[in-house]
Design a protein around this nucleic acid. Structure first.
Lengths: 197, 197, 197, 197
DNA sequence: GATGAATGAGTGTTCATTCAT
DNA sequence: CATGAATGAACACTCATTCAT
């Protein structure tokens, strides 16, 4: 019996991982609407019933997957984060990190997009997500205090300094924007012009 | 004989209208994923079978609805369109038109959002949509030629001059941005700083 | 108005014809189960409603079509019918007529097969069909009286002298039986051996 | 562990049985055309969804049922099969077995009839069916070699020695043929006369 | 913990038929 | 006579979820 439980524990982690992976893959392949629990189960080589051991229901599975991804994206953005640099450089570094991470993990990004704009979006407690992006927000606040960037509503600021990364990364929306160092810097210069004082 | 045959073809345009209306309402109320044909039919006070008289299938219904809305939004944006004005003013007018139209018709906008990011998005021929926004695109091109705005990739330009309207209008994304003349002008000033030479 | 009615009357015959034709074609192409009234209507280039002018309902349409075909087959069988010939020759001639007619009109035959073995079969008044085959039946009866063929139950007789034509004509059942003068005569010789005294 | 996993796979064969039974009953009662999956499910006291656990789709259900029946009929025909008997007796025994089995299980037979002549018929791999009748076919082949029965195309032979059983058993086609020892022997004598050399 | 079986309620779609014109 | 529109009921099938094992 001891061995039995050991085996199961081991599988535990592995299974949860593979369920999330399957969820992301399926949502990207066939879309949110068609991704059923049984298909996800099959993709993860797991029984549908097993999914309900790890997640309360389908909503829970999807929301958890979303938060998991957001965490990863947040961490990618903050790679080599250094707020002792000039503010502009700190932001540019995040931009580059963001672009390259999304480019390397298009599946993750597509998932969050589909998710955010579906009604599932409202099931997420925003604080669960925002915390992964906090350092950047603080940098912006500091920028305002130091009169480096415009003192405008924070939603306006993020619209010009956050979302462009997501829009330009979206190949469906921006099919002509090639992701490379030069283009990122060009785009960033517009973002910076927008927010700088 | 001729008149007889003419009279006999009496498709009820009013019915088509109410199906589209029901589709939009339902997608906004319960989301894309849960909006089934039968629910839409019930909302439109129509038999499910009737929907298939007007639309080939569910995809057709949704895509048609999407294009219909895009057309309306495009036309709203272009209200009082006047490209003899200074470029900045032309764009600002469109911004204002856009904000107020979306604010007054939040349902329409939510639909397009959910639609764009669902796999249905790929069923749309982009040209069917872009044509409704062409005059503004031409204004931007002229701006580039006259060296008023930056000569950068068009995707970058639209990211800063189009999408902000949509992001800021989205109450889920920007819950602190109140739509009024002042705030729109503030936001627009950032957009303008971004793209102007 | 007079001309109007004339036009309509003309169409009358033509339409009924084309509805039956469409019914047969469709049943043969996609089978009994999938042949819907609307599909038949489309195939006949007619409104579904029009079918209900000529036939009480779908059953009526199918039964009428069946009887129509049976009539045609019966008449084909009796082409050049001559009961002054020796009985064996009379029957052989019918066999040949039957085989060649079915071979030339496979659609008709497939329809009756599918029909006979479906529950629709029971909707037909057998007398409406049998009358087209009466002369042959009389020939058999004469044969019995003249002690040329076995005096057995009539069902047994028809099993060996009628049905073989239908079975051998059925390419699904008899894929190796090629329909030609020689083979027909060979097969007939077995039938004759079976029933002759 | 091994035993655990084995236990867990507990498909209820009894349920599969009752689905097949319901399918046959329904097809006989209301016909092929009207036998829907939900009606079959209700007849089998099972959820429609359950049927899709045991069968890939409706086609699969019907085809499987057909093959199942063919197997049963084949086995009935071959009851007490003994090819050391004189060929004529071997065949007669099969005839009797066939008649009595069909008489006792009219449902099975009606099903195969409706099935064969519907478009479903073409979904069956003939080898899956023929194998159950092979011994009789071999007997006929031996008969030809031993110059006991006519050396004609096999389709012709089966037309006179197989199909009569099915035709005469069909009460719709042969309402005046009562199935009893005497009548069977009479009918068989015609069949034998047809094929014997 | 993990499973495949099981299901009622739902899916998108088509049906036979009727109706106003 | 002839029509396209309209429909409730049905279709084949899948869903999210639960259950005994």
């Amino acid at each position: 019996m001891f061995i039995y439980y050991r085996i199961v524990r081991y599988k535990d982690e592995h299974k949860k991982e593979s369920i999330i992976k399957a969820t992301i893959k399926l949502v990207n392949d066939i879309g949110f609407v068609s991704s059923s629990v049984s298909k996800i189960a099959k993709e993860a080589s797991v029984s549908p019933a097993t999914i309900y051991i790890y997640y309360k229901n389908k909503d829970d599975l999807l929301v958890s997957t979303y938060i998991e991804i957001k965490k990863k994206i947040g961490m990618a953005l903050l790679k080599d984060f250094d707020d002792t640099l000039p503010l502009k450089d700190t932001l540019l570094r995040s931009w580059k990190n963001g672009f390259f991470y999304i480019a390397e993990n298009p599946g993750l990004f597509q998932f969050t997009e589909q998710f955010s704009y579906s009604p599932y979006g409202e099931l997420v407690d925003k604080k669960d997500v925002e915390k992964y992006f906090e350092p950047i927000i603080k940098v912006l606040q500091t920028g305002i205090e130091q009169k480096i960037i415009k003192n405008v509503n924070f939603d306006i600021l993020t619209t010009f300094i956050f979302f462009p990364v997501m829009i330009l990364s979206n190949t469906r929306l921006c099919s002509n924007f090639e992701i490379n160092e030069d283009n990122i810097e060009t785009a960033f210069s517009l973002a910076w012009d927008a927010i700088k004082l």
